Computed example of a mutant assay.
Amino acid sequence: MAAVASLTNAPGGPSATASDPGRRPIRLAVVDDDPLVRSGLRILVGGSPDIEVVAEAADGAQAVSMAHAHWPDVILMDVRMPRVDGLTATRRIRSRPGAPEIIVLTTFNADEYVLDALRGGACGFLLKDTPPREILAAVRTVARGAAILSPAAVRRLVDHIADPAAGIRRARARDRLAALSDRERDVVVLVGEGRSNAEIAAGLGMSVPTVKGHVSRLLAKLDLNNRVQLALLVHDADLA
């Protein structure tokens, strides 16, 4: 099998699915240097009518080309691969406008670079032994624009990884957050605590649409891709 393969046609109009006849399936790409892992994920997705594997790659360099050629909605990205690793590939892919969401695949105890992937724009991570149903649920979640990594999980990672540069990042994060208004700061701290939009709205006496607007403006103001990066910034600043 070729290292990078297009498994369906490029996206056009909406495609029918069994669950929603008017909506096209989520376009998923798989990046892993182990062909057995890629094959297993294809088999897993094959039983789900609302997700389809449209491309795959065996390393990070191929992943960047594949993402540009096939425009998947979501990429499952391995971390440790030859030539170009998943961290570098994530940064390169997420730097482009309209980039797909990326879920990092990791063994957690072995990979010490997950935080770098999240700071590079990944929307979360999955352990490679995650139950199949949870993998599919994660793909659907990030395809809707939500993150699958809670700040509680971020804290586990922060506790797990010895970081001699924490003091420098704390100062830089606080400088970035210093420009926020008091209300924006209230919102960003609650995002860092892992609160949902509904929980933030209830806690601050705001409507959910207002909270969504605040979060969107915060991401733009701080030049961030998603709520995971926002939560990481809050934790770097030691505010949550």
Results as ranks from 00 to 15, higher is better:
residue 18 A to W: 10
residue 228 V to K: 02
residue 217 R to Y: 02
residue 69 A to Y: 01
residue 154 V to H: 04
residue 204 L to M: 10
residue 4 V to W: 01
residue 70 H to A: 11
residue 238 D to M: 11
residue 175 D to E: 15
residue 209 P to V: 01
residue 120 G to H: 01
residue 71 W to G: 04
residue 91 R to S: 04
residue 130 T to C: 14
residue 196 S to P: 08
residue 130 T to W: 05
residue 26 I to F: 02
residue 15 S to Y: 07
residue 85 D to K: 00
residue 170 R to L: 09
residue 80 R to K: 14
residue 46 G to S: 15
residue 30 V to P: 04
residue 117 A to G: 05
residue 161 I to W: 05
residue 212 K to S: 14
residue 117 A to P: 02
residue 14 P to M: 12
residue 83 R to H: 00
residue 17 T to L: 12
residue 163 D to Y: 04
residue 128 K to D: 02
residue 209 P to M: 03
residue 147 A to E: 12
residue 225 N to I: 12
residue 20 D to T: 12
residue 190 L to P: 07
residue 132 P to M: 08
residue 117 A to H: 01
residue 227 R to N: 14
residue 134 E to L: 11
residue 95 S to E: 12
residue 145 G to M: 08
residue 52 E to N: 11
residue 211 V to I: 14
residue 101 E to P: 05
residue 235 H to D: 11
residue 52 E to Y: 07
residue 238 D to P: 03
residue 85 D to E: 07
residue 168 I to Y: 08
residue 142 V to N: 07
residue 94 R to T: 09
residue 33 D to T: 02
residue 236 D to V: 01
residue 65 S to A: 15
residue 86 G to T: 03
residue 96 R to E: 10
residue 29 A to N: 06
residue 224 L to K: 10
residue 218 L to T: 13
residue 16 A to T: 10
residue 42 R to V: 01
residue 159 D to S: 12
residue 172 R to A: 15
residue 178 A to I: 08
residue 85 D to T: 06
residue 138 A to K: 02
residue 239 L to R: 10
residue 213 G to C: 05
residue 47 G to C: 14
residue 117 A to L: 03
residue 72 P to Y: 00
residue 91 R to W: 00
residue 198 A to H: 09
